[in-house]
Simulated assay, not measured.
Amino acid sequence: MDLRPELLPPPVSRERLDELSREIERVAELVELGPSEDADAAVAAFDAATGHDCTAWDFATYSGRRSTEEFAREVDRPSRPRVPDITRAELAEIVRRLLEGGEDADYYELLFQSNVA
């Protein structure tokens, strides 16, 4: 089944992935040094720029679960992709794509969670 464009993962350019990856690594290094005003400010600025609610913990632990590029792709996409008129058939297709895996599986999981009570 084809999904409507608003249900597909938004594309992320290589340039944007590289930019976000550099910033993630910079913030992670600040966090690694320990709690500080600089680390807190860097996390807050990152969240403001991406519209996400990352914490210092996210930067300290991301490398154990995913690559820097995967983290960058995640934060460049909407944090809560709500689609008010989503159908049951579309949700079933989202689950199918989620179970398939691949680089967009995290987005499909978030999309599903954001649209099911």
Rank of each mutant, 00 (worst) to 15 (best):
L91Q: 08
I94T: 05
P81Y: 12
L99V: 12
R80E: 13
E93W: 01
T87W: 06
V95K: 10
T87V: 10
R88Y: 11
L98M: 14
A89S: 15
E100I: 00
R96A: 13
P81Q: 08
P84M: 11
P84S: 08
T87M: 08
R77E: 08
E93V: 11
G101L: 02
G101F: 01
R77I: 06
R97K: 11
E93G: 04
E103Q: 13
R82Q: 09
D104Q: 01
G101Q: 07
T87Q: 11
A92V: 14
S79V: 13
L99A: 12
G102H: 03
D76N: 15
P84D: 11
D76H: 13
S79F: 11
P78N: 09
P78R: 06
R80K: 14
D76C: 11
R88N: 12
E90T: 09
D85N: 09
R77T: 04
L99K: 13
I94V: 15
G102M: 03
R77C: 10
P84Y: 03
A92R: 15
D85E: 15
E103I: 13
R82S: 09
R80W: 14
P84N: 05
P81R: 10
S79L: 00
R97S: 10
S79D: 13
R88M: 07
L99P: 01
E100A: 15
V83W: 02
D104H: 06
R97D: 01
L98I: 02
I86G: 03
E103N: 00
L98K: 14
E103P: 14
I94P: 04
I86D: 01
D104S: 08
D104I: 05
R82P: 02
L91N: 04
D85V: 05
V95H: 01
G102C: 03
R80D: 10
D76L: 02
L98Y: 15
A105H: 04
P84K: 13
I94A: 04
I94Y: 02
E90G: 10
R77S: 07
E103W: 00
E93A: 13
I86F: 02
E93R: 07
R88C: 05
A89C: 01
D104P: 09
L99T: 11
G102S: 06
A92S: 13
I94H: 04
P78K: 06
R80P: 00
P78D: 05
R82A: 14
R77N: 09
P78Y: 07
L99H: 12
I86L: 10
G102D: 07
I86K: 03
D104R: 02
D76M: 02
P84W: 12
E90L: 08
I86R: 12
P81D: 07
S79M: 09
A92G: 03
T87G: 07
G101T: 08
A89W: 10
P78M: 10
E90V: 09
T87I: 10
I94G: 00
S79P: 03
